[in-house]
Amino acid sequence: MYPENLKYTKTHEWLRVEGQKGYVGLSYYAQDQLGDIVFVELPEIGTEVTQGKAFGVVESVKAVSDCYAPVSGKVVERNENLETSPELINKDPYGEGWLIAIEMSDPSEVNNLLDVEAYKKHMEEEGHH
């Protein structure tokens, strides 16, 4: 449920680093807590995002939730399929349910993120199982 090759945030986003680029999505836990996702609002290509700051919104039937950028940089790709099929986040949170790709302005920020073990520990501490 939590791939080892990803980095995680305390706010339950994941980051997959590919060179200077980082793909961003929601963790299994995040989508499971939200339930059926029915709406996604993503930034335009070219938008500057900042580590730890909200860049978009996902909404489930019952809840509205901000998504926080794992790293700073410029949005270079966004998952257009989510506009018509937001449920992809529930079905495949680490694959087809990705949100955006960021061209990182400071790749050393990745060091501030959690690896899978630290993320699991963080969930335990927050009382999530």
Binding site: G35, D36, V38, S60, V61, K62
Partner: peptide, 8 residues
Amino acid sequence: PVQFSSII
């Protein structure tokens, strides 16, 4: 219970 499987 808010849901068992999924609201939808």
